[in-house]
Amino acid sequence: MKRILVEFAHPAFQKSRINKQLVDAVKNMKGVTFNNLYENYPDFFIDVKREQQLLSTHDIIVWQHPFYWYSAPALLKEWMDLVLQHGWAYGRDGRQLEKKTVISVISTGGRREIYCREGRNHFTINEFLAPFKQSVNLCRMEYLPPFVVHGAHTMRDEEIPKFAEKYRKLLTLLQSVQLDKDKLSSVEYFNELID
């Protein structure tokens, strides 16, 4: 069974509706380590050694966060800046993360339709995620299609558990199943591979 590390970044978790349920669905799963970044480092002073240790002992890394300004909340970016060190994560001698897998789990306020050329946001989610994808590539890891929860602002409460359940299934899948490369490249979101 593959070990999963959820790096969770939400600066106002206490106000969250969607991420609260997503987190509750997975944080106590067997083989899953839940790392709440804003709770651990409220002063942005990240313990780099500890974080690198965590990365080393897991196979799959989940970046779970709300989509702020088409990107991650500031602390996750700080985390990338500090933890993914040259000579450790990337560079000529930086091979500590080699062959690991990364997936983004994000929630957006806007509906899926507006994330396209004709839509108000003009770009697709995957285009916005390009910096994450390339960071992962640079560290010689594999970046999976993202798991996306769209329409957070207008979602009714009774619709949320459906996504929480799907998220749980996603992690169960990642833990045990060898993923089919062709299937992965055929979809835009990982959501489509979970029934």
Partner: peptide
């Protein structure tokens, strides 16, 4: 504190 340290990257870039 080696955060945002570019020394090693510069070294590597120069050598390549």
């Amino acid at each position: 504190d080696s955060a945002w340290d570019v020394e090693s990257i510069r070294e590597e870039a120069e050598s390549s």
